[in-house]
Amino acid sequence: MTSVYEAAGRLEGLTRLAAAWHTRVLADPVVSHAFSHGHHPQHTARLAAYWAEALGGPPSGLNESEVVRMHSGNGPHEEMNRRAITCFTQALTDAGLTGPVRQVLLDYFTWSTNTSMNRYHTTADDVPANLALPRWTWTGLGTTNSPHQP
Rank of each mutant, 00 (worst) to 15 (best):
S116L: 09
T93G: 15
S112F: 10
T113I: 09
T137Q: 03
Y108L: 12
R135G: 13
W136Y: 15
T98W: 10
T143R: 15
G99R: 11
M117R: 05
T110F: 07
N130Y: 05
L131Y: 14
H121W: 10
A129I: 00
T139D: 14
N118T: 10
T143V: 15
Q103C: 02
P134M: 12
T144P: 03
T123M: 05
L92P: 08
M117F: 13
L133H: 01
P134S: 12
L97I: 06
L141Q: 04
D107V: 02
T122N: 13
L105D: 01
G99C: 09
L97E: 05
L106S: 05
P128I: 00
V104T: 06
L105Y: 08
L106I: 03
T122C: 04
S116G: 02
N118P: 07
A95N: 14
T144N: 04
Y120L: 00
N145I: 09
A132Y: 00
R102T: 14
D107F: 02
N130S: 11
P100Q: 10
A95S: 15
T110R: 09
L131R: 13
R119H: 09
L133M: 12
V127T: 12
T137Y: 03
L92H: 06
H121Q: 04
T139R: 12
T123L: 06
A132Q: 04
L141R: 07
R135E: 12
H121G: 02
S146V: 11
N145Y: 13
P100N: 09
L141N: 02
V127F: 11
G142N: 08
R119V: 00
G99K: 08
Y120H: 03
T113G: 03
Y120F: 13
T143F: 15
T93H: 14
L106F: 03
D125G: 05
S146A: 12
D125M: 05
L141Y: 04
Q103D: 12
T122W: 13
P128D: 01
T98D: 14
L105E: 04
T139P: 01
L106K: 11
L141F: 08
D126Q: 13
P134K: 08
M117S: 10
H121F: 11
L105V: 07
T115M: 05
G99M: 10
L92T: 12
S116Q: 06
W136I: 10
Y108F: 15
N114G: 03
N118D: 15
Y120Q: 00
D94W: 07
L105W: 07
T98A: 14
D125S: 08
